[in-house]
Simulated assay, not measured.
Amino acid sequence: MVRRIYVVRHCEAEGQPREARLTDKGVQQAAELAEFFSKIEINRIVSSPFVRTVHSVNSIAELKQIEVETDERLSERILSTKVLEDWLEKLQATYNDLDLKFDGGESTREAMARVVSVVEEVLNGEVENTIIVTHGNLMSLLLKNYQSDFGFEQWQKLSNPDVFLLEFDENEVLLKRLWQDKEVIVASHDISKTRKN
Score class of each variant (00 low, 15 high):
113 A>G: 11
61 A>I: 08
58 N>P: 06
93 A>T: 11
85 E>P: 08
64 K>Q: 06
92 Q>K: 15
63 L>G: 05
110 E>A: 01
107 S>N: 10
92 Q>N: 14
72 E>K: 01
101 K>S: 12
82 K>P: 03
112 M>Q: 15
105 G>C: 09
55 H>K: 13
109 R>I: 13
91 L>K: 05
84 L>Q: 02
55 H>Y: 14
102 F>S: 14
95 Y>V: 08
76 E>N: 07
106 E>F: 04
45 I>D: 03
65 Q>F: 09
56 S>I: 00
103 D>N: 10
60 I>V: 05
51 V>I: 15
79 L>M: 02
93 A>R: 09
99 D>W: 07
103 D>T: 14
44 R>G: 05
106 E>K: 04
93 A>V: 07
59 S>F: 10
88 L>H: 11
87 W>N: 09
108 T>Y: 10
61 A>T: 07
69 E>P: 00
48 S>N: 08
114 R>G: 04
59 S>A: 13
49 P>M: 03
112 M>A: 15
47 S>D: 04
110 E>W: 01
48 S>C: 04
84 L>I: 11
51 V>P: 01
53 T>F: 00
69 E>V: 00
67 E>F: 15
61 A>C: 08
87 W>Y: 13
96 N>H: 13
74 L>K: 01
107 S>E: 11
59 S>W: 12
55 H>W: 04
45 I>Y: 02
107 S>T: 09
67 E>H: 11
107 S>R: 04
89 E>C: 07
71 D>A: 05
79 L>H: 02
92 Q>T: 09
